[in-house]
Design a protein around this nucleic acid. Structure first.
Lengths: 232, 232
DNA sequence: GCTTGATTCAAACGTGCGTTTGCTCCATGA
DNA sequence: TCATGGAGCAAACGCACGTTTGAATCAAGC
């Protein structure tokens, strides 16, 4: 075995662990997934997971990081591109929303394998209670969220910033639940029948986009502080 | 000790376990919560949980059931009342949405204690991967979902039913994430500062309602099957 | 040919888990 | 007065967990 093959072999084991972990975490959640389950699914020795990844927490972080890195860099790139094209003018809300949520679904659909699995893992992880996951995700998203927040503020100068933040939260929730693919309440009958249904489903993105933009542009509610501006 | 006091004592222990479990499950998730943690927080003996509730799974189900029962019965009552008042005519979408999500928040806000804790637990449980929770929740929601689905279909006769189901899913996601109170991405700075913030926050409901109705009434997306109807 | 260092592996470590076991306590009612 | 049975309790059960250990394996480099 030459050096390249050795390198390949090492990489294979590590990535097989990551791929299996992604699948198991998606299906069973973090606490519901054991190292034995992961290494069993990956077809490697139990100790290999700790050897290559360090710990269960580090394994989870790497599962999330390796894909979020690609997605969030692309999110920044697309936003940069849109702002360059707009040459200083504020972006339309729909452009920002598509750059954020559309990029997520497009990148996931592009991945050779695991894109769909990751989407559903992400949809569940976003509400995970465990502390180290919340901390890690905050860090991974910090830059992207700050840039998109500013873009939204510029895009909607007449809307109170608190209102924008709230609606961004609602959008995140709607998108997360949809890509999680199967919440507790299985309303869409053919969900989870096909493993690759979420990312492959080309109808999800336009459906989601319509809903999100509709929600974002809805008339502002009447709030205690007397703000009655209609958002249009 | 007379019969009434015995009864009271029995009830107290059982309910203290349920209250503590509700709090711990909300904070740590189902798998992340141990029976020792629950009974410790409740100030009762470890064996008391199995004695009064049977098992950890049964404990979780009872935590959810005792509040969902009240909420879902009220949801049915409010919908019945609205349909009676409409005397056969289809309801407005906003009325249906308020009957579903508004009732949830109002009932939770009414509860003397634990309403807010339960809301956040519910927001997280709705994406829980574990099988027995999904099965249980499906059963608990079956009647309510069927009634509301039919009401929505009648309310929007020109909109494809598949589209209505999708948008109901989006709404569920937006609401769940918002009431979970703290997702991984903490956009709203003052969230989770105050234990009673969600249910007490009178501004959440109007904000959520505006967003949901805006999303529900958004123009229909262009779908592969060529449907271009605008939903208005 | 032999050392080196990275990888694999079976086995074990200690710990925390859900649950069960007997025992004690004590109000109840015949 | 005393048997009855619900409730509380300390202790233990067997098991699965994350992690570590130390030996075995093997290509690479001198």
């Amino acid at each position: 075995m030459n050096k390249a093959n050795l390198e390949q072999s090492r990489k294979d084991t590590r990535e097989r662990i990551l791929d299996a972990a992604e699948r198991m975490f998606m299906q069973n959640g973090y606490d519901g997934t054991s190292m034995r389950l992961v290494t069993g699914a990956a077809g490697v020795n139990l100790a290999a997971a700790n050897y290559h990844l360090g710990s269960k927490e580090a394994l989870m972080q790497e599962v999330l990081r390796r894909r979020l890195e690609v997605i969030n860099q692309e999110r920044l790139r697309v936003l940069d591109e849109a702002e360059t094209k707009a040459s200083g003018k504020p972006l339309k809300p729909s452009v920002i929303i598509d750059a954020f949520f559309g990029t997520l679904l497009r990148v996931a659909a592009d991945q050779k394998a695991g894109g769909d699995t990751f989407l559903r893992l992400l949809g569940r992880t976003i509400t995970d209670p465990s502390n180290f996951i919340r901390t890690f995700m905050s860090g991974e998203y910090a830059d992207v969220l700050e840039r998109y927040r500013q873009a939204m503020f510029r895009s909607l100068p007449d809307v109170p910033k608190a209102e924008i933040v709230w609606r961004f939260h609602f959008m995140l929730g709607a998108a997360s639940y949809a890509i999680a693919g199967t919440g507790t309440l299985q309303l869409v009958a053919d969900w989870q029948v096909d493993e690759g249904a979420v990312a492959q489903n080309k109808n999800l993105l336009p459906r989601l986009m319509s809903f999100l933009i509709g929600g974002l542009r809805a008339p502002l509610p009447q709030i205690d502080d007397g703000n009655k501006t209609v958002w249009q």
